[in-house]
């Protein structure tokens, strides 16, 4: 198993290298566009243009430019955004990442637990009103756009009913770091967590139910029943445990893209200074260094998360363990 893990790690590094080359190429090696002007921002003076050109080595060969860029991103970390008066990019991302991580991890916890409960219940009570109600609720969850749901909860909890006993505990929009005030951190995030989780609860519970229903026809489920196990044990220890393999692969991808900035809409709606909102701001300002850095960051996250999913796969499915 150890060699497998090492090989997977090597592959991950290789993919990361490829991604960085691609991102670099898209932003700085596109023919017909001068990267200097794009980094310097709109209406830059010729002096700044000249400074940028030398700093980034745009007058030199492409590999040198690539190395300079990677050095500025990962080693000296002094990639600066000219559109934003020279603010350093990497610290901005370092500040934004924990916010996004907190938001996504909390939401992920909610959606995984809720969808496992809903999916399993629906499969156990297949074709009864329990099943139909849960799956209808899931469909409604999938259909509600997250920004709309966010705005409506804001409307209710922040203004319309904020003064009632029900929502008076809700703090204003924004983020409170965990290290400053754990209680405030929780209160600031609990509503964004639920709002972000709603759609995923819908998707995951429906996928899990479909998986469990398909598994119910499998031979090994019949064997489990023939052994005289209780229906609960058959469903949980044999059905759910086997269905988790698909569940985990789905989860890894969604989780990675959310941490990599996919929670943009939720972050913007709730005023959370996360990676998504950083990207959003950079896009509106055409702040090229920040855009590149966030793209790079999210690509790294998706690749790393995929590697983690593969490793969890090894733990979950003995067949995969032997196949490599």
């Amino acid at each position: 198993m150890i060699p497998t893990l090492l090989r997977r790690l090597g592959q991950t590094l290789f993919v990361l290298f490829g991604v960085s080359v691609l991102v670099f190429a898209v932003f700085f090696a596109t023919p017909g566009a001068d990267p200097t002007a794009r980094i310097a921002g709109r209406n830059a003076s010729p002096q700044i243009m000249e400074k940028v050109r030398r700093e980034y080595g745009f007058d030199r060969a492409l590999p040198v430019q690539y190395m300079t860029m990677m050095k500025k991103l990962f080693i000296t970390r002094d990639l600066a955004s000219y559109a934003d008066r020279g603010e350093l990019v990497v610290p901005q991302i370092e500040q934004a990442a924990p916010v996004t991580a907190c938001l996504v991890c909390g939401a992920a916890f909610i959606w995984v637990s809720a969808s496992i409960i809903m999916g399993t219940l629906a499969a156990a009570f297949r074709d009864t009103w329990v099943d139909r109600t849960l799956m209808l609720a899931g469909l409604v969850g999938i259909s509600i756009p997250v920004f709309w749901l966010g705005q409506v909860t804001n409307l209710i909890t922040q203004s319309r009913y904020h003064d009632t006993w029900l929502f008076s505990w809700v703090p204003g929009l924004g983020y409170v770091p965990f290290s400053e005030d754990p209680g405030g951190w929780f209160r600031a995030l609990v509503i964004p967590w639920v709002v972000l989780a709603v759609m995923f609860i819908g998707i995951y519970s429906r996928v899990l139910r479909a998986d469990l229903v398909a598994l119910a026809g499998e031979d090994f489920m019949r064997t489990a029943r023939a052994k005289g196990l209780s229906p609960t044990r058959v469903m949980l220890r044999h059905g759910l445990r086997t269905a988790l393999v698909t569940f985990v692969s789905l989860f890894g991808l969604d989780f990675a893209q959310l941490v990599g900035g996919g929670a943009l809409l939720t972050e913007v709606v709730f005023g959370l200074p996360g990676v998504g909102r950083l990207t959003y701001r950079a896009l509106t300002n055409l702040d090229l260094p920040v855009i590149m850095a966030t793209v790079m960051y999210s690509a790294i996250f998706v690749v790393v998360a995929n590697a983690v999913v593969d490793m969890v796969y090894l733990l979950l499915d003995p067949r995969v363990r032997d196949a490599r």
Binding site: D219, F220, A226, G228, S230, H238, R241, T242, V245
Partner: peptide
């Protein structure tokens, strides 16, 4: 019936390839 199943009456199936849960 469940108490009887597996203890007094046991069953073996046609396809041993798929009759065991793959993850245990």
């Amino acid at each position: 019936l469940r108490a009887l199943r597996g203890r007094d009456i046991a069953m073996i199936f046609q396809d041993p390839m798929t009759a065991f849960t793959p993850v245990y």
